[in-house]
Design a protein around this nucleic acid. Structure first.
Lengths: 360, 360
DNA sequence: CTGTTAGCGCGTTCAC
DNA sequence: GTGAACGCGCTAACAG
């Protein structure tokens, strides 16, 4: 051990190894990077020393010569306490990152607290600071997002979990929410409903735009006027959902609701209906969006629309891993389609906890 | 917008900003780092440009001048597919890291695939490579661990979730497992048992040593010979637990079992007992270790020993955050005590999934 | 208040 | 097959 002393901060440099081996730094560099041009016995001697002192190259110095390619950045596109990210989804993301990147010896840097920069958030600091050579962006993109434009322009491998109108070339793996809203609305129109309420969350974000678009398209096709007033913006707060449902159903004209808030909060819907004196499945009908293929958010719903968000993301991450490894090019453009099920077997799933709710 | 072009790789450097502002690089550096010595209007001008081009300093270049202090490394002390890390625990760890580090604007690099280096594993690559300025080590330490010695010697803030005989000064937040084994054994001795089985997992790791020590101490105090044969090493595999219980109980002399495998796998215990033709609570007695204060692993147990592992870790992470922020010194030495409960109310908890079991 | 110089640890270029 | 010199982007020490 310690055949000499490493640098003052306790870390060995390539020069320390070179000195110990009686060669130049460049030769050590060649060995470390598995390059040719080193005699076998010299190589063996150097490798032995590296092993002995457990030398590891300084990533900072390396990253000054070329972009780091062994670390993926994981970022969230908005502050977590505003994010519709639930515990299960985040753990699931972690699994995917683990399976596709960490397991393969890559590192992953997380940045979950993007600073506000004027109107938008800079969630790609890990990239700008060259901590990583690729980025996975979790969460919905803001309509006026500019960060993703810069990420895209950087040419590095990246993926988002949603499209963005202002950047059609964006790399994404997502579900067609416009179609989800369209089939939901059309289904209810076909059942004779004329005034259909919608719980529309993600205000200011792309998902909100897509829901609106699908809803209006279905109405238009049916020759009905666009009734924006039945699209109620909601937050992820339970009380907000209760109020929104209450307000919608207090209007006797409203005979159906599309629950696409992303909250999967059946009790809140029921409470809102109760306050309005309405009975789901009797007084009015509900179409519920769900994110698991075998789960049911609400047993009273007349139909469920399954959004294969995880399935899209899983394939997206897979492709990102390939892109990251240089086995394919980007961008990734993966659009899964939602499916409407009239009958769902299995038990009702309970409302997932959002990430910030875990915090004491 | 591009008032000039950034470097060829699309990233702005401090020199680009300096050129645009008509000042020297050092002045820009002062502004970026909030140092004094820059005139207010010069500072404003520079800040404006930085904002415009969204300049971010190159972390690699920075880390060559001084140790990175804005990123925590999170490492696992053994390959995840061998790790007794369950889903809930890992998500919980993530929460803590989120709450104490990510929320405060720090980054976190994960390394979950430490390479084997001879006998031991090098789980601190993120540290050696200067990706981070502190380390949280998840998982049990191997008896012959040398990596943690180097981490300790580096002087950086770090924490482990267990002690290590070979390094008494180690920074840790853990539960006294020796005491857990001692009180478990003593309790059963007091109830008249003479031959007490123990499911001892983590072979080759420190927790195993501590369990053994407490077990033997209790026997010794009671004037009984050390019966190592009743301490059965088990893995985290259900079949292994079943077999171990079976083998123990097939011996009629064995009238009690301490379930401290860490598996929380009641069905496996029951199956093992069934195969041996024994009935828990009737033929023999069980003391079960548990990791939640309000949960019960097995209703047939005559006592539960609660190991406040999370509670210890939570306080440990808190102190790590302080150490990381320079608000206190290390090492952290936090030893929580287990508690034996004869009566537990509440429902039985189900066996947690281990991390690798999530993977498809 | 501001600029110059040097050097952090590494990889690249080119010479030996 | 090997090494010397340079420069990556940044900051500490020192000038002015």
């Amino acid at each position: 051990m310690g055949r000499s002393q490493p640098g003052k901060d306790g870390n060995w440099t390539i020069y320390d190894i070179a000195r110990l081996a009686g060669v130049s730094a460049k030769t050590v560099s060649r060995v470390v990077n598995g390059e040719a041009g080193v005699g076998p016995e010299t190589r063996a001697r150097i490798e032995k020393i590296i092993e002995e002192v457990q030398y590891q190259p300084h990533i900072g110095a390396r990253s000054m010569r070329h972009r780091t390619r062994d670390c993926l950045g994981v970022a969230i596109s908005l502050p977590v306490n505003e994010a519709p990210v639930n515990q299960d989804f985040l753990l699931w993301i972690f699994q995917e990152i683990y399976r596709l990147f960490l397991c393969r010896g890559y590192f992953a840097v997380w940045d979950m607290n993007p600073p506000k920069l004027g109107e938008t958030l800079d969630y790609a600091r890990t990239l700008w600071q060259q901590r990583c050579g690729g980025l996975a962006v979790i969460g919905p993109l803001a309509i006026n997002d500019t960060t993703i434009h810069r990420v895209h322009a950087s040419g590095c491998p990246y993926i988002t979990l949603g499209r963005l109108d202002s950047l059609p070339e964006v790399s994404f793996a997502a579900v067609n929410l416009e179609e989800g809203a369209y089939v939901s609305t059309k289904y209810l129109l076909n059942r004779g409903h004329k005034n259909i309420g919608m719980l529309k969350s993600f205000r200011g974000f792309q998902p909100s735009v897509e829901r609106r678009r699908g809803y209006l398209r279905a109405l238009e096709e049916a020759g009905l006027p666009p009734t924006e007033k039945y699209m109620r913006p909601v937050s992820f707060d339970t009380r907000d959902i209760v109020n929104a449902v209450h307000r919608l159903l207090i209007d006797p004209a409203v005979t159906a609701i599309i629950e696409c808030s992303g909250c999967e909060d059946a009790p809140a819907i029921r409470e809102g209906a109760r306050r309005a004196g309405r009975v789901p499945g009797k007084d009015f009908e509900i179409v519920c969006w769900t994110y698991t293929s075998d789960g049911m958010v609400m047993s009273e719903a007349c139909a469920h629309v399954w959004l294969p968000v995880k399935e899209a993301a899983a394939e997206g991450f897979e492709l990102l891993a390939q892109w990251f490894a240089g086995e394919r090019e980007g961008p990734i453009q993966l659009l899964y389609r939602p499916t409407l099920h009239e009958i769902i077997t299995g038990k009702e799933i309970s409302k997932p906890l959002r990430l910030f709710e875990m915090l004491s």
